[in-house]
């Protein structure tokens, strides 16, 4: 606690708070709330049962009605606390409900059946995680299929992109050849052509190549990016030419120089690009939406989007699926956030 206080009070004026400090920290903590609460709320909600999700006003933590195993019954029975009537204050288990009446038993004394009015009782509830929201995804939906599709696209597209972009960046940074400036201009030119403005012809080309409704149709068209070429080229230029010359003296082939020397030395830039590529591909939406029309080819993003239409009321599955979709990215972020920040700042996003 003392630590926390000293963290909060330390300012540039050595402990003296002026109003700007108050404003700054208030703003920041408001920001923390606004940025974190929605995600925390999503995660907590995803552990609620369908009945609990429909409760209004909602509770913060997921609750479930407590149950009890009573001798002589196979199923666990829901527990109620009596608030009025003959049994006020007692906790009883419900056998069945008949209209406005319910048949209850005292778990301690299961032989005796008690009839009570349903107005005289309230359910006993405890904090419990509805893990069935998650397990249900694997049983009821093709969740693993979507997960696999997303993973396959992300991994394959990232690898292809790294290789293709690194090769181009190598050529553009380490060779003197006629037409190099033209190629660089062409690469800059592609910056001006985002997928969003060439959707129709891109659709034709992909379908002519027979890649419609195939994961390759999502992977290949975006496999070369101008951002990647520039990012890697910028880094490769800093690798001294002497290393290459030494390797050439030793009769290393150009490909070997690329693969054994340039790529390992560019690892930091490649790591940044890899993280960006993973993020773009995992979160990609519009182009997969156009290419993949059969649900067995859906990525997680497409599946989520189509389920929210179909399952308007089935929030429990939808929320669990949303959490599982953001989990891999959250994991990447936790471990690599330093690279992500520098990577994005240096490339200006996409």
């Amino acid at each position: 606690m003392a630590n926390l206080w000293s963290m909060l009070t330390a300012t540039r004026n050595k402990g003296r708070w002026d109003w700007t400090d108050w404003v700054s920290y208030s703003y920041l903590f408001l920001g923390v709330f606004l940025m974190f609460f929605p995600v925390i709320w999503l995660v907590l909600s995803s552990f609620k049962t369908e009945a609990d999700l429909q409760r209004y006003p909602p509770t913060f933590l997921p609750y479930q009605q407590e149950t009890v195993m009573v001798e002589g019954f196979d199923e666990p029975l829901p527990l109620f606390r009596m608030t009025a009537g003959d049994y006020e204050g007692q906790t009883l288990a419900q056998l069945r409900r008949v209209g406005l009446q319910a048949q209850m038993i005292d778990p301690a004394n299961p032989a005796e059946r008690l009839r009570v009015s349903i107005d005289d009782r309230e359910p006993v509830q405890g904090v419990a995680l509805a893990l069935e929201n998650y397990t249900g995804l694997f049983e009821r939906f093709n969740f693993l299929r979507f997960f696999w599709n997303s993973t396959f696209i992300t991994v394959t597209a990232t690898l292809i992109m790294l290789l293709v972009n690194a090769m181009a960046a190598f050529a553009l940074s380490k060779y003197e050849f006629r037409g190099r400036t033209t190629v660089l201009l062409l690469v800059i030119g592609t910056l001006m052509i985002p997928q969003t403005v060439v959707l129709v012809p891109l659709f034709l080309i992909v379908s002519e190549l027979g890649m419609l409704n195939s994961l390759w149709g999502v992977i290949i068209p975006g496999a070369a990016t101008p951002t990647g070429v520039f990012l890697l080229r910028q880094y490769m230029i800093t690798i001294p030419d002497e290393i290459l010359d030494a390797a050439r003296m030793d009769k290393a082939s150009e490909w070997k120089i690329f693969w054994r020397i340039i790529l390992p030395l560019s690892a930091p830039a490649i790591a940044v690009l890899a993280i960006l590529a993973i993020m773009w591909r995992w979160n990609d939406f519009l182009w997969p939406l156009i290419v993949l029309t059969q649900s067995e080819n859906f990525t997680l993003q497409l599946a989520l989007n189509s389920f929210q239409g179909e399952l308007q009321t089935d929030w429990s599955s939808l929320l669990a699926m949303t959490v599982l979709t953001l989990l891999p990215i959250a994991a990447v972020f936790m471990f690599l956030q330093k690279y992500i920040a520098t990577g994005i700042a240096s490339t200006g996003g996409k």
Partner: peptide, 12 residues
């Protein structure tokens, strides 16, 4: 160099 550039340029 053109061989190294080829896949990227083809895709572009």
């Amino acid at each position: 160099a053109w061989v190294f550039l080829l896949p990227n340029l083809l895709l572009f």
